[in-house]
Amino acid sequence: MAPAHVLVPLDGSPLADEALSHALETFDCEVTVLNVLTPIGSGMSEGGVRERGDERLDDARERAEKMIAEATERAAEYDREVETVIETGDPAEVILAFVEGSDVDHVVMGGHGGESNGLVSRLLGTVATTVVSDAPVTVTVVR
């Protein structure tokens, strides 16, 4: 059965961008793009620290908004619109909570963030592994 609502988590990685393209090309349904700002200490922060009250949070939010705007522009290239969401927290936990709290019935995501080389190219990233293992919906991993 074709999905009615697809979630695409974006982290700025090339594979996440490919996941968005795949979702837009493959599924004719509602698409939500989610970017997660990651607090300091989680070990998963994209580009450094994300601490509430820290001026770097403003920079991180600006980068996230730019990423979301680019996703919106890419969707327009497919004559599509996407819902956009920016959340703060542990990426895997936020993704799973979003799925649980919404009508999302499919997740399309990159296999891992960052460069693809050596061992990393053969394994799923930590976030993707957690989402694949724990999501109550189908997950497509783009590699």
Score class of each variant (00 low, 15 high):
113 G>W: 12
96 L>V: 01
59 D>H: 13
85 V>D: 09
57 L>D: 05
43 G>D: 09
137 V>H: 07
139 V>P: 09
41 G>K: 08
125 G>L: 11
19 A>K: 00
39 P>I: 11
39 P>L: 11
5 H>K: 04
118 G>C: 05
78 Y>V: 05
43 G>W: 03
47 G>Y: 11
105 D>P: 08
101 G>W: 07
43 G>M: 14
11 D>W: 13
119 L>H: 06
19 A>R: 00
41 G>T: 11
117 N>S: 14
79 D>Y: 04
49 V>S: 04
74 R>L: 15
81 E>Q: 12
119 L>Y: 05
127 V>D: 13
91 P>L: 04
17 D>Y: 02
126 T>K: 12
127 V>N: 05
90 D>C: 08
27 F>E: 07
104 V>W: 01
73 E>K: 11
49 V>L: 10
30 E>N: 12
91 P>Y: 01
85 V>I: 14
133 S>D: 13
20 L>K: 11
95 I>N: 14
3 P>T: 09
80 R>C: 04
76 A>Q: 15
33 V>I: 00
109 M>H: 12
103 D>Q: 13
138 T>A: 13
16 A>F: 06
17 D>C: 05
65 E>V: 01
134 D>Q: 14
140 T>A: 05
27 F>C: 12
137 V>C: 13
37 L>C: 02
66 K>P: 00
30 E>M: 08
70 E>W: 02
70 E>V: 03
94 V>A: 10
15 L>G: 01
7 L>D: 10
60 A>I: 05
32 T>A: 03
56 R>L: 09
133 S>M: 08
5 H>M: 01
116 S>L: 10
96 L>I: 12
58 D>L: 14
53 G>F: 09
92 A>D: 15
116 S>R: 07
46 E>D: 07
11 D>P: 03
53 G>S: 06
127 V>T: 15
85 V>E: 15
52 R>W: 10
38 T>M: 06
54 D>S: 11
19 A>S: 03
9 P>V: 02
132 V>E: 03
105 D>Y: 13
126 T>R: 14
134 D>C: 01
23 A>P: 00
17 D>W: 12
8 V>F: 00
60 A>V: 08
46 E>M: 07
109 M>Q: 11
46 E>A: 09
141 V>A: 13
62 E>W: 03
86 I>H: 03
107 V>I: 04
120 V>Y: 00
46 E>K: 01
142 V>Y: 00
15 L>D: 00
56 R>G: 12
140 T>C: 08
85 V>F: 04
120 V>K: 14
82 V>Q: 11
129 T>K: 11
133 S>Y: 01
109 M>A: 06
67 M>R: 12
84 T>F: 03
80 R>H: 13
19 A>Q: 01
56 R>V: 09
87 E>M: 08
16 A>E: 07
81 E>H: 06
88 T>E: 10
105 D>K: 09
34 L>S: 06
53 G>E: 11
84 T>L: 03
105 D>V: 08
115 E>V: 15
127 V>K: 04
49 V>Y: 10
29 C>K: 00
1 M>W: 04
29 C>E: 02
61 R>I: 09
